[in-house]
Design a protein around this nucleic acid. Sequence first.
RNA 1: GCGGACGUGGCGGAAUCUGGCAGACGCGCUGGGUUUAGGUCCCAGUACCCACCAGGGUGUGGGGGUUCGAAUCCCCCCGUCCGCACCA
Length: 944
Amino acid sequence: MSARLEADTPPHRYTADLAAHIESRWQARWDADGRYETPDPAGSGSPEHSSAGPKLFVMDMFPYPSGSGLHVGHPLGYIATDVYVRFKRMCGFNVLYTMGFDAFGLPAEEHARQTGQHPRINTEANIDNMRRQLARLGLGHDKRRSIATTDVDYYRWTQWIFLQIFNSWFDPDAGRARPVSELIDEYESGRRQPPGGRRWEDLGERARRELVDSQRLAYVADAPVNWCPALGTVLANEEVTNEGRSERGNHEVFKRPLKQWMMRITAYADRLLEDLDRLDWPDSVKTMQRNWIGRSEGALISFKTATTRPGPQHVIDVFTTRPDTLFGTTYMVLAPEHPRVDELTADAWPAGTPGSWTAGAATPRDAVAVYRARAAELSDADRSDSKTGVYVGCDVRVPFSDAPVPVFVADYVLMGYGTGAVMGVPGEDQRDREFAEAYGLPVIRTVQPPPEHPDELAYTGDGPSINSAFLDGLDMAASKALILERLQEAGTGSPKVNYRLRDWNFSRQRYWGEPIPIVFDEHGPVALPEDMLPLELPELTDWAPRALARDSEPEPPLGRVTDWVDVEADLSGGDGLRRYRRELNTMPQWAGSCWYYLRYLDPRNDDSLVDPDVERYWMADPEPGAVGGVDLYVGGVEHAVLHLLYARFWHKVLYDLGHVSGLEPFKRLINQGYIQAYAFKDARGVYVPADEVEGTLQEGFTHDGRPVARELGKMGKSLKNSVTPDDMYASYGADTLRMYEMFMGPIDQDRPWETRSVVGSQRVLQRVWRNIVDEETGELRVVDEGPDDELLRVLHRTIDGVRSDMEGMRFNTAIAKLTELNNDLTKRASGAPREVADVVIRMLAPLVPHFAEELWHRLHGSGAGSVTQAGFPAADPALLVADTVEVPVQVNGKVRGRVTLAADADAEFAVAAALAEPNVAAHVGGRELRKQLYVPGRMITLVV
RNA sequence: GCGGACGUGGCGGAAUCUGGCAGACGCGCUGGGUUUAGGUCCCAGUACCCACCAGGGUGUGGGGGUUCGAAUCCCCCCGUCCGCACCA
């Protein structure tokens, strides 16, 4: 392509070759000048670029440095933030804008396992490649501030934050995290008593440690992992097939409990929920977070067993959001994993047990054992839609009514939600209704349904309570209030807020992650002191998978580094050297991405994760009620819940402990859309390379002469439809690519990639170029006389529109307005007036920075400063008001003509002018006007 | 099932927030110019239907409503996409 400089292409046309030349020249110059380095009020900023303007912190979600490189879909959000940042800089803002890499993760470890090469080598090569690809786009990042989560200097502070969390507990009275040292002080001074009537002084070392450890924000608990002995590793849920085997190698996988680090995010559930209201985020993301937290108000109700057997009476708690339906309870269900199932299960079927309740087993123990074994094999998704269960041979009594009801084990009740036990109310809950039908259980309605409500369905709406003793006649809200009061009086129940959110499992049985800075002594976990950070990953020389016996214990890769596992250290300063065993799990990939925005602020600080003055400058928001945080955060919706929730959680902990100044990490969030691409399948259903397909939608598409079917999907290797930025640079240049991606549609919308359309953006730039530079001689074409009045007004209307579009990140319409203005210039035979060219170049600068910088220097001479520092044009308000306006005239709702009026014409004059217009007069036809309206400057409406 | 977003020419989209000329801008397509030709580039046209024109009719997923006036606001339905999914 580049070699095809045909004889008839003018030598100074804006072609891909010229663009490449311009782009590399200005990129080198900008780098040499430190053009995009942002000064700080303190710390390492360079004073010569200091700016008095207001601060703005703009950030993209940083990428994982994948080995396969970029396609044109990846940088969409980066281009958008870059355009916005350049615009705000030209408006006088001091903008912080950089890019880092989320570089721990599975693919690098997988690559290491296959090649034997250390993941750091591969990771750093990928980062270098990605930096190169992004730099080629001309993104105005402060490169000095870039970090990778795998940098030892970075993960040192990730570990430091872990220790802060470990050394904190959540004080429910204060509603915030406090240092564990304060908790211990309170125990020691007697201001706080251990639970269960024990005394701190009487507790041994182990009991004290357990008491404190159980309240930490980071704590150890047993949680099930997917242990694959054949691979000698633990697998993520995504790596396990539906059949419960390993994706790689199809080996057996076992669920095994393993000691895991948990983060007590549930303590923050209410704050995470409430503060959502204060964020400028898409409603969809807020809704997803609300649903994920899943707060529901209800009651905890205790049911006592009705057994006549000797021995202790058992009590089972259920959670319900409908305590008002208590009197409709006709059975109880426990999840198969419920820990009390064994003690409740009877030895023999009570007399008269229906056959359908026994699953054909000889005893309840047999039936329950078979049922539980089957449930354990099934993944949650496979638990069938039809309701099944078995009777455990034991009954419980419904509070107040004292009616005995049977207890079942059924897999439609989940151990992970509420108490893992529910009261079955088939009258008011459709799931319970289906179970009751299957097992012939009675149905008692406790809310009077409306007459049209079908008999066979549960009724979940509001209405007067019935069959409910003292609740009868009350509506749902009143019934709930009264039953809660009575339950509390009777000591058999209490109000309860339940959450779907669960504590965050923070352990990964992986090598390529941050080591957790914890060691264990005989009593439990001990934090490494801060001065022992960073705790560096040890070398792992043996990458080969090792097959282990079926009954082996799960073991993280770090367990293989035998000289690292056991450590002798003096941790308490004074006790002398003691032996400890290291934590072998590493942190999840989320850890590094939970706080990287803070490190951008002060990336080389060795004394703290961020200097407090610097943090306040960039993160504090002086507005009353403001939450602080990054001013604009742009990234994909796939992080709507986990990343954004975990980061908010960490930020709130850091806030509680006084390390950051605001409540929230990200004040404003925008989800950029995805670039989709057409993919083509042949008759066998196999994808063929999209760039080899010929034909059109009308004629049909073919590959190698055979017909193929088109579909729209994610751009990527699997659909063979990737288009790389490098292809676009070669054919059009980076500026054209930037402009096309911004022109395709609104930033938050998905859109299909169409390579053939890219030329449109190049043509626009070529026309702009041609209006300023002579394609034959390379000389400037601009004329010195100023624009005429009409052009001047068009120019200022354009400035006004482009400015507000840029502010609102509506780059597609900003480009349309600039194109329109340029088309207007093109129609005038002479070159652009110098004054107009100057303004157009400045307006284009955020979108196509190299192109604008080049024209700026051609226009103003080599001594001119950078266009990136020129002011963004501002419209003259006097030129925005036209003295005459053309106004459409509607007769009975149809536009029948237009009249030109003075801008300040009154209604009477406007209507008179409208009636004078022949076509309007013809449609009025001399009839009487029933109504006449003039919306100044917009519309004249006549009704006859 | 629950929740959210969205539905406009052959295509991407504009106008939706704040009701007031539907289709800006670009792709594609049609015709013309430049060129030996193709490509590039330039000019004109391009929602659909009727009409030589002037002009007229229809039209923003479907139906209803509010209004002088609805793509825009309200209600119902249909469809597409996304999230959650036996959450008690």
